[in-house]
Every structure is written in C-alpha cells, then in structure tokens.
Amino acid sequence: MIAYILRRLFQSIVVMLVVGLVSFSLFRYVGDPVATMMGQEASVADRAELRERLGLDDPFFVQFANYLGRAASGNFGISYRLQQPVMELILSRLPATLELAFVSGILAFVVGVSFGVYTALNRSGMLSSSIMTLSLIGVSLPTFLIGILLIWLFAVELRWLPSFGRGETVRLGYWTTGFLTPSGRASLILPAITLGLYQMTLIMRLVRAEMLEVLRSDYIKFARARGLSNRAIHFGHALKNTMVPVVTIAGLQLGSIIAFAIITETVFQWPGVGALFINSVQFVDIPVMAAYLMLIALIFVVINLVVDLLYYAIDPRLRIEQSGARH
C-alpha cells in the first residue's frame, strides 16, 4: 500500500515537472520580457544590464531550477497587466471557480447517477426514453450555447435568476463565498447547470451502460436465485459494482469541470480564475497564463491521485492480500 502511494506520488511529481517545463517555456518563447519592460528607447547596455540583473542570461537549467523553486513556494511573479502578484490574483479568484465547480460536480454526479440507475432499471419506460433523448442534447450542444439559452429563458424571459456575476459574497478569511447569501446562491444555479450538464449526461450514460452490464452478470443472477430482494440486488450488489469505473471517470471529470469552467465563466461573467485566464490571454499576460497552467495541472494530478486511492478503497481485488493464504 505504502509502496503504491509512493510510486503514484513519484509519477505525479514527474508530471508536474514536465508541466513546469511547458509553462516555463512560455516565458522564453512568447516574446522577450526585457523588450516588454524597457520600452523602445532603452540602450543595448541598459538591456544587457537588466537581463543580467533579472538572471535572464543564466543558463537554461539554472533559470528553470529558479523558476521551479519559486513556483513551489507559490511565487509566480507579477502580472504584466494588473501589476499585482500573480499568486494573490489567482487566490482571490479561486474560491469563485471552486465553488462553481463543486456545485456543478455534485449536481452532475447526483443527477447523473440517479438518472443512469433509473434508465438502466426501467429500460423501456416512457420516462427513460425521454431522459435518454434529452441526454443526447446535453452531450451534443456546446456549453456556451446552453449557457446562453438558459440565460435567455430564466433570466430574460422568466426573470427568475440573475444572468451574470456572483451576487453578494461573504468574506471568510481568505475565502469569499456565495453560499451564504440568497443572491449568491441564486447566481450559482444557472452557471452550475451549464457547467455540469455535459458531465451529467456523460455520467448518466456511463452509469446506465455499466449497470446494464452488471445486471447481466452471473453474480446478479446468483443473487436473484438466492431470493434477495430487488432492492438489495439493484442498490446493493449492482450499484456498488457499477460505481467502480464510474468513480474514476467522475473524479477525472471534476478536473475537467475546473479546467473548462473558462467558457461558462466567460458566458456568465463569473469572476473566477477562468475569466482571469481569458483576460490574460488577450493581454499576453504570461505570468498569469503560466501560473494558471501549473494550477490546473496540479488540480488534475491531485484529483488523479485521490481517484486512484479511492479505486483502491472500493475494489478489494486491488488491495494487497493481508489475511490467510490463497487456497
């Protein structure tokens, strides 16, 4: 078990080093920072002097090592556009994105699993067919279109929910939360649905397919032959086996939810890191882009690690045999 965790940790570190290299290359190959900072009138000597002072004439590996060292301690430099430390900027925007992703993730998982189980157990029902048809729409419509449609229907026509922003937020230390105010909660609904819809249909279709597969298996047949109740068979035996692959996919989808929040945040003017990233791209604000890249990679790696450990907890076959010899 410990060896397994250590191995996975080592793999994670390797992945982060590679991402660090990519994000570092942004600085080296997307424009010359010295030219950006000095303006047109600077002399060649001034430039060389600044270059030396900033360590930009050091060998590649020295610069890379310095970059990684600073990144590891949370120092990603100063934003070209906003003249604020990048880490501070990201941390102030992160709660908005995480809250949005959290709510979408829960929504996608709960609704996706329930619908998936329902459609698997009632294969030929009217409701099942309707859900399956609607899910096709969820899979095939692009996120921004769904967002715009939702805004048009619920914000413009029905005027039930706000069309943009986060509403009022409450500050809890570093964290600003929209959960505690009515307008904050109302503002979360549309973006959360928009962001979670695709993942929801994906999870639903996956759960349905897996469950149908599991219901055909011998151990379910044997459970029926033992006279267990439908409830015990469907929600005990079948669901547990269905969830093994679903947890993996759902966990990885959480990473994509955070990463792809960019589009939803843009549509809903959501003040999260995704919107920050889009603005930074427009202004070629490389420190922010590089830090965002590292952050998303870190989130993916951590989620991957957690999912692998969860997988391990759910499926006893992966655990190391501890009691009794094999017969």
């Binding site: 151990y219 006279g227 267990l228 035996h237 086996n241 093994v244 006893p316």
Partner: peptide
C-alpha cells in the same frame, strides 16, 4: 427462490460478487 429452491451455477469464479 433461495428458501425452498436453491440454485448453483456453472462458474464459481463469477457467481460471487467480487466486492
């Protein structure tokens, strides 16, 4: 089923729920 008629299937490897 189970109480008055018991049934044993062909493949013991897949008859038991692995989890």
């Amino acid at each position: 089923r189970g109480k008055r008629i018991g049934m044993i299937f062909q493949d013991p490897l897949t008859s038991l729920n692995p989890l």
